[in-house]
């Protein structure tokens, strides 16, 4: 998968929008590793929640020109940046300023991507609409992620796939068990140690025949 061009972005805008970092690239690498599987699924609609600069969904759109791509972010500046990143890379992207995927009708997305705010913080740091929202995850770094898990069965198609980035502090096994209760299987796609943080991407799916 190609890395989207980012030279259109004014560096000062990263004061307000999460700048692509190791975690963003790990999510792209996970998609690349799963490319054959994703291609076999031939997704119609893909959604990235909390798209920030937009590089992940744009990379997806570049690899899947026949998929309609959507992104949401709670921060309007991030929505704007996602839209311009897609445009600069000739990807058609629909962007909505929304909390997670809370305003979509049922079960439309074949692929959902989420690099959540995963840093363990106090609960009251979590829940803003600015740059803090891109990293502050509250208790276990999971407060936002857990709300998203609850939405997945409502907005993912029955044979859809959800890719989620986590760090060890988020207790991935708990996330896997919450999703198992919703009827989802899981696989760890990729794992990497970055400085003192262990990051991983887990995929969740309901079909049993892969």
């Amino acid at each position: 998968m190609e890395t989207p061009k980012q030279n259109h972005i004014d560096k000062n805008d990263f004061d307000h929008v999460y700048e692509p970092a190791e975690d963003s690239y790990l999510l792209i690498d996970a998609l690349e590793k799963d490319l054959q599987y994703l291609k076999s699924k031939n997704p119609t609609f893909c959604l990235e929640v909390g798209s920030g600069s937009g590089i992940v969904i744009t990379a997806f759109g570049m690899a899947f020109p026949k998929t309609v791509c959507f992104s949401t972010d709670i921060n309007f500046k991030a929505c704007s940046m996602s839209k311009s990143t897609a445009l600069q890379n000739k990807v058609m992207l629909e962007t909505i300023n929304m909390d997670l995927g809370s305003c979509f009708i049922g079960n439309k997305f074949d692929v959902i991507l989420f690099n959540p705010p995963y840093v363990v913080t106090d609960s009251d740091e979590c829940g803003s609409c600015d740059i803090t929202a891109s990293w502050a995850g509250g208790i276990k770094g999971r407060e936002v992620t857990d709300r998203m898990l609850d939405l997945i069965p409502k907005i993912l198609t029955v044979d859809g796939t959800f890719y989620l980035l986590l760090i060890e502090d988020n207790i991935p096994n708990e996330v896997i068990s919450i999703m198992a209760d919703y009827g989802f299987n899981s696989d760890i796609v990729i794992k990497r140690r970055v400085r003192n943080e262990c990051q991983l991407v887990v995929k969740f799916f309901q079909d049993k025949n892969i």
Binding site: I74, F76, K83, T95, I96, M98, D99, S102, C129
Partner: peptide, 10 residues
């Protein structure tokens, strides 16, 4: 809807 982006925040 501003600059093509709907604001669905509540």
């Amino acid at each position: 809807i501003t600059k093509g982006i709907p604001n669905m925040l509540l």
